[in-house]
Design a protein around this nucleic acid. Sequence first.
DNA 1: TTAGGGTTAG
Length: 862
Amino acid sequence: MQKDNNTCNKKKTENNTEKRNSCFSWRENELRTRRSTSAQRRPQPQQKHIEMMHCLTRFSRVGHPVFTSRCRLLHAITIDKYPELLEHCIQTKSLKHGKMIHQHLLKNDSNYYNGNRNYFVLEKITRFYLICDRLGLARNVFDEIPEPTVILWNLMIRAYAWNGPFEASLDLYSQMLVSGVIPSKYTFPFVLKACSGLSAIEPGKMIHSHALRLGLDSDVYVSTALLDLYAKCGDLARAENVFYGMQCRDIVAWNAMIAGFSAHGFFDDMMRLFGDMQEAGISPNSSTIVTMLPAVAQASGLSHGKEIHGYSVRRGFSKAVMVGTGLVDMYGKCGCISYARTIFDLLGVKNEVTWSAMIGAYVASDQMREALILFDHMLLEESSRSPPLVALCCALRACTKLIDLTNGRRIHGCILKSGFLSDLMVSNTSLSMYAKCGILDDAAMFFQEMNPVDRVSYGAMISGCVQNGNSLQALDTFRKMQLSGIDPDEATMLALLPACSHLASLKYGACTHGYSVIRGFVADTSICNALIDMYAKCGKVKTAREVFNRMHKRDIISWNSMIAGYGIHGLGSDALALFGELRNTGLMPDGITFISLLIACTHSGLVAEGKYWFDSMVREFQIIPRVDHCICMVDLLGRAGLLREARSFIDKMPCMPNVHVWSALLAACKIHKDVELAEEAAKRIHSLGPESSGNFVLLSNIYSCAGRWEDAASIRITQSNQGFKKRPGCSWVEINGVIHAFTGGDNSHPQSEQIYKKLKELLTETKKLGYEAVPGVVFQDVEEEEKEHILVYHSEKLAIAFATISLSPSQPIFVTKNLRVCGDCHDVIKYITLVTKREITVRDTSRFHHFKDGVCSCGDFW
DNA sequence: TTAGGGTTAG
């Protein structure tokens, strides 16, 4: 019987949407007719259950015990004692004795089950189970009562609205209407709460109409529940209608309306209402403050946050753990980490949310070491409890940002110990940590073993692939995501687009753009920013500008991406013009704007402009130069041949020069063949370490150029001894949507023979026009012929030869390289454009080189 | 009251 009932109830819940639609067509005039037939409509006890009760009765008819106030079974009782005893159990919440009475009733009183049941006692038992939080048992008894009172219906609806499943609450409300019972003013707050929990606004609207018909909508509890439902569901206009229609608004109503504005990001409305509330003579309470703080944090409304903080202190709320935690979170998200920490330290009582909020605040403020220190502190102070899930996730994110695999593994261990790995958010955070810490194979294995996975898991994997330089794997993961039936969202596209940018794959980039249009993602500023970057890096700077022009709303990243896009194409004047437009918008440039602008000036040789804007950055925009800006300046001056000025700039830098500053100078020395300064730069790099293989190569090549072969060889030996390997050059070209990659001297391509044949032909033709292998870029004192042989096999030459035989003569060639293009290749490509009458574009790590009619857009200045 | 994958430069 119970099982049958449960199955029946389960089915009822599963079909609740259908039922809701049917029951909510309830009309007031149907109510009276249904009421008269309600007894027939209620489920009758099943035969099986009756037989079981008879059986129990036969076995245990041994008298009726009763227990005293000391809860001991003493002597026999009669039926009329049940209500009194049950009431006692309700008052004392004594589950054991209440159950005993229930069992006794089932065993010994067949009168209850032979058609003359005392349903008053069953109602008491239902109430008893509800008060003891035994909702399932309460439901079983409740279902035996043919005509429960409206009070009992309300108690059952309330129990489901508080404990869930919310569907059951709505389901019971429907049954109540069908059985002909008229809801009371107590019914609506509970059933509306269940609607809120389900975000079920349409059923909520129908229930609203029921309350209206019964004239109960003016009740302050009913109207507050209605406004709370509308506010939670984001229908703030409807919520305001209810709110302003209320004759009497208590603090709960004000708080519900404020919570609606807060939860949906209507910061200004929320603050306005906070003021109105006080003007109306209602003093905000701690719930008001707790509700408001997340919206303040989201809007970074620090000044308002401080006002609310002051108010909380004056009212004595700030010491309450929930208010204090809200303040920690608000200050953390507004960038005032020291305020957050002070409040955290002063809080007498901290709960797990407080710890998590403070650790999260450090992560949000880019203070990862402090986040991990506090996490360890928490482990010590709260050693009796397992660490909270959110704090674990925050600490793991700190490790991810630090690329700290050791601590990441340790925290992952804590997660395994706590048994949280089944939580999808935790496993996604762990996946992201492994992927971003560079152990992509482990991350891929972890991902494969994850069950279930969601779009965040795929996003983490795609992003991890891109950040580890494996963009092809990122595209492959995206393909698998589509096959799995999980729909990508904006974040997925934002992870994927850099893969297209990195590969310079216009085909995939354009597909991603098309997909984003279909899904309506292009309304998102971040998506457009990523599209600008993608088109610019795929060689389509005009398309990038079209995306930029069509944007409805641009943020500073939009402008920075476009300025950087012009920069890598050597369009310094366009970058400066766009920067001028930016100044007219009133949007404040940031540090990255100036890095992009300085790079654009560097690639176009606009030295005076670069120097002017560097000074202006400090003077006009009060941006303190970071080491990244200084690297740009050394690059700008050095490439222009102003080596002494670059050297002097380093001395005057407002921050300590790092390896990259000296590397920029070393690169400039290579271009302008200044061996003496190069040696100083190399020494500085050596003292700062760790060095990169690029610097060994640069210095070695400088010595080679100067004919100092022994020094060049010595550098190479040092490089080898210190375990630095030269990063292999790799170039690739996309032909009909397939990416073909080549390394130096590569003969693995299926068309390798034809490629080398074509390259030989091209070189023969270029030599007729005057091409000679450029000396000085080969690191050894080798014979000229052999030097030429080494250069022949550079990856960009192989990619160009392959593109020449794969594309029709009218099609331009676009090659991408993972290092800077070498001087000899740069020279020979110019000749190849003369021989083939083709346009060739090479994107290296620094910029674009557009070759046409024997000339490169970089003006041989890169 | 806290929380997972995401866009620009270097």
